[in-house]
Design a binder for these strands. Sequence first.
DNA 1: AACCTGACTCGCC
DNA 2: AGGCGAGCCAGGT
Length: 106
Amino acid sequence: MNSLSNNFFDKVYNAVKLIPKGKVSTYGEIAKFLGKPHYSRQVGWALHKNPLPGVVPCHRVVFADGSLSSAFAFGGANEQFKLLKDEGVTFKQAKVDMAKHFYQFT
DNA sequence: AACCTGACTCGCC
DNA sequence: AGGCGAGCCAGGT
């Protein structure tokens, strides 16, 4: 792992932490924000490997279509669903209402 | 060094 | 509209 990839991971955490309450973002969008439009998987990996639970609101990061991560590790997709809903995020059946809660990094 | 897997996404059927 | 497959990158075995 070189300093660049390390920086990428750090940027991922930073970006995720920037997502305001009641908003969500996608792996691809974060990757794009970091200058790597095809690093969606690495973003997910960064969060998976992320030893900062509670610091990085991983539950605000969802799939591009608004569905929740299948391999979610905070307590299951159900827990993530509940958490987001508690923050004011609305859902379209089982998917986040991206049109209203999608947060784009500026 | 090579192969496989994995918190993803897009395109095609 | 929904489901399946291929593509992508990096890390782990």
